[in-house]
Amino acid sequence: MIRYIIRRLLWAVVLFVAVTVVTYIIFFIVPANPALGLCGKACTQDDVKRVQAYWGLDKPVPVQYLKFLERLVVHQSLGRSFATRREVNDIVKDAAPVTASLVVGGVVLWMLIAVPLGILSAIRPRSLLDRASMVFVLVGISAHPVWLGLIFSFFFGYKLGWFPITNYCDFINPSTDCGGPVQWAYHLFLPWATFAILFAALYVRMIRANVMETMNEDYVRTARAKGAPEHQVMRSHILRNAMLPVVTMLGMDIGLALGGAVFTETVYALPGLGKTAISALDTFDLPTVQGIVVFSTICIIVFNLIVDLLYAWIDPRIRLS
């Protein structure tokens, strides 16, 4: 088990280096000089050179990358934004809770929809409920979150006025004009729904398929042959096994979900990581982009690690081999 964890951690480091290197390369392939933007329109050639020297942009890319790594490892610092001169650490610190609220709430919502719907439609295939859930799945998979977000905010926000269309409220500390758990959830409800529908649809399908497959397993028949009542067969023999792959998928989809959060944040103007990254891209603000990439990568790696360990814990075949 310890060996397994060490191996996973080492792989995480490799993954981390790979992701940041790729971000660097992409950034420098883009034909734009960040120093020019930083300096402003009135700058002379000499000014630009000075700015480049100040930010270290005159050094070769590998050196810049190593400097970035050094800063990160030694000082745990992601550097300063080109655009606002703020510490990227602070930018991430501000944006991360917003994205975390969106993603965590979204995951909870999508599992709340997908688990019961998936199980019920697996138990009664071709029933009305199964067919209805199929329609939901088709709509959920085909609708783009941006479109869905616009529709939701138009109907539920603008027409019916049930929910606010934009704005984010802190969960605890009312740093903004609003705050507290109720306001937080109230403001986030539409983003959550928008964010959750695609994944809920995918997970309904997956859970339905898993449960149906598990219902045909020999050990389920064994359980029935023992005289176990149906609810016990379902709980103890079907669900436990059918949910194993769901746990893995959830771990893998966290990365995907962070990507999906970008759309939702844009539509509802939530000041999360996605929106911040997009604004940073507009201004060629490499440190901010890089900082968000690094932070997201770490999050995804940590999540995957947790999920793998969780999986090993619930599946004895992995734990004991």
Binding site: D218, Y219, T222, A223, S236, H237, D315, P316
Partner: peptide, 10 residues
């Protein structure tokens, strides 16, 4: 099939 007739997680 005794390989598949026992529940692997219990």
């Amino acid at each position: 099939d005794p390989m598949t007739s026992l529940n692997p997680v219990h």
